[in-house]
Design a protein around this nucleic acid. Structure first.
Lengths: 404, 404
DNA sequence: CAAATAAGTCAAGTGAATTGATTTAATAAA
DNA sequence: TTTATTAAATCAATTCACTTGACTTATTTG
């Protein structure tokens, strides 16, 4: 018997936990399948029709689902489909990038209602957080104008910024996000906004966006490679975002992945495969507002320098994809990012044909082994906004348990 | 509304699911912490003392826990600690290896009660399964002799064999386990033994063993690198073994991981780092009964050929460890295997000093970044036996849900 | 010896799912 | 046109495991 009271145990659960889970799976089922009748939901979830009826009635009272016109489907009483109410919930997303901050407000189904950005002052977080809070305030006013009831239905605020967190920088980071990482950002924003705040890294946010309304929608095992200023992955395992022991899982940008010809002085993968690397190559300022257009333009023009870079990156990512497939055995891998659509699509094309791996099975799903996902400067902010929605409404093991 | 009835939804739950979960976390807490009083359990799990009392009473009736002598711990009524009853449950493990099959019977706390092996005939599974069933039968008789009541308390049979499953061989496998993989092994053994049977690959089984009674005991995020005839990993994520979309996750042996100097014709990692590779180098027959002793002997003698191999493998695994840390952000990485203790320990020593990674944090746990785990020809069979115990008694998300 | 503290139990209460019968509304068959 | 069949959905009673709040027991402290 442990007399020091340092007992390691998992949390118990009770009726309330079961009920909360069942509400979440209803919302999840409606999100993934579109409108469903209560009978459909009962069959799909294994609950009794009566239980489903009660839960749906409650969700309707809460303004989260609503009925549609009945549908005749052969014999028997016509079914009444239920759908999610887009205005049932809203969430704020905030991206802290190296030189800019972006905010997005989405509704329950992931539609973007507000998006705003502001330049971050060079003075670091002490000055920057004022800009950030002001931006959030403006975004909420804009939301209020569109939907007066929305403010009451804000379920939280998600923050995304470059990781990893809690680590002393391993190699030089020209933008030194360290100051932001050490600043008590979450508490400051929580106090300044009165909302529940959570933090993710860029790649996790991008994966959250892919799951809510992108290529990973409804998938339980997907790896999202985030190609932005840095390189990382968001890991969707068993239908949940996996964070590891310290929420830093997925940092593939730090892997020392060699390709034939590399010497012992090989640098981390993201020094080759990232927007940062491309900007360096093209001598572009990453803080340039027209960066995406300029990169797209450079891709169109081509030229040996760009083509060689694409070749090199494609070769490195081809091996990375094979490694990720071998490690995770996922349903699909999604290349997404804070990068121009043209670049993501080009890379997906150049990475193929893929190397042999365990994903190379005779009976593949509809999903391709590798596909392009969201590619937009706003995708991280969007993912940040998707996080509170997911946290509040998605089925998760931890949501059943008594302790947070 | 989906008229084709192909609705994707997660399973619901009810009181029974909650109850099952609570029983599991009690057993888990006792396994991880040793004996605990009901008050301890209530505090640790978040359940009320009354709920814990009821659950413990029921577990005691089922013969899974028993009380110890009361302990005075300062003021207040003395506590009655409860412990797991080793004879509360038993499970059979079966390893199908290339040239041999091993069976192990363990009890609830992972103690090995029976272990037996037999040579597999060269005729493949059709002949082999007869040997296998006979071996299991003999093991059960031996168990009966030790513990007459045990037979009634067998909770299942775990099978472990080399993966990956459901894939056409990607490169030549000299032992052609394909025949075994295509044979309806699970059904045949289930029918032949009357037990619930499940299948894992070697590495997953080794990780299951590490979790029940090895270095991963009580950890929620650990990566077990299995160094045996092949090379793979067992992924313990969120306290559960992760299998991926098709139970083939962790196959790092198939990664084309380069080290400086490698050319474009690099082979999969396990062609360098595995017992198979070492046997080839030393011109040893892998089916040699005294293989472990011979390998240990070769290590002791040293010599340039062996030293160079160790250097090369250590270099490759050093990079693999850094990659796995970057990808999973685990609490620890465990090198274990179907390999001699001397080899595993030597490799752990040679792999250090580790490369910088996100695991290289100032405030590290008690756990080292890399440590040696079980190294024994029996560890896979042991893990196979641990699987039914884990499946029956460990807390898992899926154990709460209504559908299997 | 009384007060404080902690473990544990008793008995009633609670809430969400289940059970089984019933209602409603459509199509298919007679 | 009528009747049977099928399916959706509801009603009312039941069940079950956890919770609540009061209480008992056993030990240490002052």
């Amino acid at each position: 018997m442990d007399t020091k009271r340092s007992i390691r145990a998992k949390s118990g659960t009770n009726l309330g936990g079961a009920s909360a889970h069942n509400r979440r799976i209803m919302i999840d089922a409606l999100r993934v399948n579109g409108a469903l009748s209560r009978a459909d939901l009962a069959r799909a979830t294994g609950l009794t029709p009566q239980a489903v009826s009660n839960i749906i009635e409650e969700l309707a009272l809460d303004g989260l689902v609503r009925s549609q016109a009945t549908i005749r489907r052969g014999r028997g009483q016509p079914a009444t489909p239920y759908q999610l109410v887009p205005e049932g919930a809203f969430a704020v997303g905030l991206q802290i990038d190296r030189h800019v901050t972006r905010t997005v407000i989405v509704n329950l189904v992931g539609e973007v209602l507000v998006q705003m950005e502001a330049k971050l002052p060079p003075g670091g977080p002490a000055e920057g957080v004022v800009v950030v809070l002001d931006l959030i305030r403006k975004a909420r006013i804009a939301l209020q104008a569109q939907s007066p009831e929305a403010e009451k239905r804000l379920v939280g605020l998600g923050v995304a910024m470059p990781g990893p967190f809690g680590i002393n920088t391993l190699y030089d980071d020209p933008w030194m996000m360290t100051a932001w990482q050490n600043f008590p950002l979450i508490d400051t924003i929580a106090q300044g906004t009165g909302l529940a705040v959570a933090l993710q890294n860029d790649a996790a946010a991008a994966a959250t966006a892919e799951r809510l309304l992108g290529a990973a929608h409804g998938l339980d095992h997907a790896i999202c490679i985030y190609f932005g200023y840095g390189l990382g992955t968001g890991l969707i395992l068993n239908g949940e975002l996996y964070g590891g022991a310290h929420s830093n899982a997925g940092e593939i940008g730090m892997i020392l992945a060699l390709v034939p010809g590399d010497g012992p002085d090989v640098e981390p993968l993201e020094h080759y495969a990232s927007m940062a690397a491309l900007c360096k190559l093209l001598k572009l300022d990453p803080s340039e507002p027209e960066l995406f257009a300029m990169v797209t333009d450079a891709l169109m023009r081509g030229g040996p320098k760009v083509e060689q870079w694409i070749d090199d990156v494609a070769q490195r990512l081809r091996r990375t994809v094979q490694a990720l497939e071998s490690i995770f055995d996922p349903q699909t891998i999604i290349l997404c990012g804070g990068a121009p659509r043209a670049l993501i699509d080009r890379l997906v094309a150049e990475i193929g044909p893929l190397l042999p791996s365990i994903a190379d099975r005779a009976s593949r799903y509809p999903e391709a082994r590798l596909q392009a996902g969201l590619a937009d400067p706003w995708s991280v902010a969007l993912g940040a906004a998707a996080e509170p929605i997911a946290r509040t409404f998605d089925p998760r093991f931890s949501a059943i348990l008594k302790t947070a």
